[in-house]
């Protein structure tokens, strides 16, 4: 069973790396989170029973693990928010390319999960199923997330 589990994970590990990259910036923290997600997936694997698609099941457990993880005192969100505030007030501040990852970092933890699923081109129904949330709520949140991300992209284009 372990061999089959690891083979399934190996095929779908891209999902895990993407989740890890939006919740952690530090390489050591990314490794810790990846290991924790792997542990939780293995713990839940006996109950999987092919009730849903493997990737759907994997998304749910991986995102729940990342969301419930204890937040560190100074998160990258605080650091990036400070950077954005500085940019608005002092355009002369050293320029860094504003990536989509940095823009997503401005969102709260739940919105980060939803934005990841949206950017992976999951339907609203799939996102609602993975998150265990209402589909209408997902739609409203995605519209708000798009507006926030658009602001950042427009700023980058204007430079």
């Amino acid at each position: 069973m372990k061999k089959r589990f690891l083979e399934d994970i190996e095929l779908n590990q891209g999902i895990l790396h993407k989740i890890v990259s939006i919740y952690e910036n530090n390489p050591e923290d990314k490794k810790d989170l990846f290991q924790e997600i792997l542990y939780q997936l293995w713990k839940s694997y006996p109950g999987f029973e092919n009730r849903a698609a493997f990737s759907t099941w994997m998304y749910r457990i991986a995102l729940n693990t990342a969301l419930l993880r204890q937040r560190k005192k100074y998160t990258s969100r605080e650091i990036n928010r400070t950077y954005f505030q500085e940019k608005i007030q002092n355009p002369g501040v050293e320029d860094k390319k504003i990536s989509l990852h940095m823009a997503i970092d401005q969102l709260n933890r739940i919105d980060k999960a939803i934005s990841l699923l949206y950017l992976e081109q999951k339907s609203y129904q799939e996102i609602a199923e993975i998150m265990g949330m209402n589909k209408n709520n997902i739609g409203v949140r995605i519209n708000r997330i798009k507006k926030q991300l658009k602001k950042v992209l427009e700023y980058e284009r204007r430079k």
Partner: peptide
């Protein structure tokens, strides 16, 4: 049990 929806968890 990580298989549940986030709100329930």
């Amino acid at each position: 049990s990580m298989e549940r929806g986030i709100e329930d968890l």
